[in-house]
Design a protein around this nucleic acid. Sequence first.
DNA 1: TTGTATGCGTTATCAA
DNA 2: TTGATAACGCATACAA
Lengths: 341, 341
Amino acid sequence: MARQPTGEPPSTPRARPATSIDVARLAGVSRATVSHVLNGQIERFSEDTVERVRGAAAELGYVRSAAGRALVMGRSDFIIVVVPYATFIRLQDVIEVISADIEELGFTMVVHFDVARGRGTASNRLQHMVETMRPAGVVDLGGLSLADREAITESGCPVLPRRLPSAVNRWIGTLQVRHLHSRGHTEIAYAFLADARDDPYGRGRASAVAAFCEAEGLAPPSRVHVPIEPEGARRVLRELVQARGWPVGIACYNDKVALALVFAAKGLGLAVPADVAVVGVEGADIGQVVSPRLTTVASDVADSVRPFRAALASAYGGRSAADDAAPPLDDAFFLLLGETT
Amino acid sequence: MARQPTGEPPSTPRARPATSIDVARLAGVSRATVSHVLNGQIERFSEDTVERVRGAAAELGYVRSAAGRALVMGRSDFIIVVVPYATFIRLQDVIEVISADIEELGFTMVVHFDVARGRGTASNRLQHMVETMRPAGVVDLGGLSLADREAITESGCPVLPRRLPSAVNRWIGTLQVRHLHSRGHTEIAYAFLADARDDPYGRGRASAVAAFCEAEGLAPPSRVHVPIEPEGARRVLRELVQARGWPVGIACYNDKVALALVFAAKGLGLAVPADVAVVGVEGADIGQVVSPRLTTVASDVADSVRPFRAALASAYGGRSAADDAAPPLDDAFFLLLGETT
DNA sequence: TTGTATGCGTTATCAA
DNA sequence: TTGATAACGCATACAA
C-alpha cells in the first residue's frame, strides 16, 4: 500500500514563487483584477490596467497555481491520456499529436501507463489518480474496459472518446484476415505476442478474425502465442503446421510477431509465402527494411489519431460532435503489400 | 499559445465527492482529527477514534484532494518522469518499474513526453508544468540538458538522479566501439537514426565513440544518418564505403539502424561482417530473431533502472545516498554477440 | 486526547 | 471600470 510521502526532499534553493497578490501589488491593482485580466476578460478593463498587470506578471515570472485553481474550480486543468498495456510502437508519435491538441485547448496533458500489475483490477491506480487529481478528462487510447470507463465517469470525469475505441482493433483484424482469404487461404491462425499478459488490442483483433472466419464458413482460427526468439517461434510454428497443415495464413498481432514467424518458417524449411503466409500490423519501418518485406496493416498516425482529436475538440473545443461520430477508419488503416503473402 | 480551457465538458453524473468535513461529521469528530488520523499520526488518538475515522472515510469513499493538499503543502505529491525525445523500445518496462517505486513512496507518477517540437527550447512545456503543478520531483531519464535541469531546480523542484545520466550513453558508445576495435576495425563510423531531430542519447554515444577513436589514435569516426527504409539506407552505406573503404565498423544508434544497414549491405553486395560490421544497441528481441543475428549492446531493464530507483529512495525514502553514487553500469549493459561483427 | 483557527492561491459574486 | 470578500479542501500550530 502507498505510504505517506516521507523523508526530506533535496534542498530547494528558491524561496517562494510569486502569487497573484504579488502581481497585484506590483501592478497597483487588486487580486481580482489580476485574475480577470490573466484569464482573458480584458474587455472590461482599461488598456492601461491590462498592460500593467501583464507587465507585472511577466516581470515576476508569475504562473497561476494549478492547486489553487483546481481547488476553486472543483477540477484541475489536467487531461490524463491512458496508454494501454500493449505493444505500442508509434506511441511517441501518437502522444505528440494528442499532446499538441490538448495544449491547444488550454489543458495540460499527463500520461498514465496502464501497467497490468499482476493481481487485482488493472486500473485502480488510474481510478485513484482520477479521484485525487480530478482531471478535466481522461483520454482512452483503447485499454480501458467498460467497467473502468464507468467507474471513472461515475466519479465525475468524462472519458474520451465516448465510443469504445475497440472498433479500431476489429477493423485491423478484419483487414488482415480478409487479405489472407483473398489470397486463397482457408486455414487461418491468429498469432498473439507471447509475453503480453493481458493485451486489450490483441483480444479485439483476434475476435474479429474469428468472426470473419465464421461468416465465411471457414474453420475457426487457431490461436497461437509467439515468443520473440528463434527457438520459441519455431516451436510454435511447427505445432501450428502440424495441427492445420499448410498452406496456412497467419494474422499476427504486430510486425515483430510476423517477422519472428517469417524467420521461423525459413528455419523449418517452409516457404514464405507459399507454405506460410503472414500479415503483420503497424507498417513498422523495420518490417520494410528486411527481406522478405513484410505484408502488414499500416496506419497513418495523423489519421489514426483523428478520432481522439475530434473527441477532444467536440468535448472541450465546442466543435460539432459529428467528427466524433464518423471516424474514417478506412483511411487510417490500410494494407501494405509486401512479400510475405 | 495555450488558450483558456473553454467549452462545456460532457455531463458529469455524480454530485460532489466526499470531503474531510463529511468524514468528520460521520465519524463524529473534527476535521483536524480526520486529517491527523488519515495522515498516519494515530499514536495520539484513541483506538476507537481511529477506527471510526477510517471506517467513515472508507464508507464515503473519501480521497484526499490533491488540490487542497498541494495548496497547503506548497507542492503536490506528483513526481514527473520525463521521457526524452529518443527511440525508447523498452519504455513501457522501464516506466513500470519506476512507477512501482514512486507509488511505494506514496507519490503519484505522471509521465511527460519531452517532444522536441521544432523551434524554441525543447522543454518549456515541462518548465511550465513544473511551475503550475509544483511536483515533488522530476525524474530525468536522460533527455534534459544542464540548462533544463537548472531551470527546474531553480523553481524549487529537485531533479533526479542528481548526476547527469549521460554517463550511461557514454558507456554504451564505448562498449560498441571497443568491440569493433577488438575485432580489428580501424575505420569506424557512428550511425544516427535519420529522423530523430535532436536525439540526446545519440549525441552522447557518438561523442564517446569519437573519444575512443582519438584515444586509440584512429581516424575520427564518420557520422552518418540512416533512414529506416531500403533505398535510403543503401545510399548512406554506399557513400560511407566510398569515403572510408572497407572493412568498416559501424556503431549504430539502435538495433533498427543496425538492421537497416545489414540488409543494405546485402543489397550492395557487401559481406556482413567481413566488409561491413555493425553493432546495435538494445538487445531488442527483434534483432535476435532475424538472420543474421545482430551483435548489440543489450541491457537488463532491472539493472538499468537501478540508478533511478536508488535516486528516488535516497531522495524521498531516506535510504543512504551511496546507491546513487555508484550505479553499476557494467552490469546493466553488456555486449550481446551475434553474427554481424 | 481533541477541537479551533488560520492560511495556502485562485475564482466568483456582488458592491462601489 | 474596479475592488472587497467569501468560498474551495486541507494541514497544522495552538488552545482546551
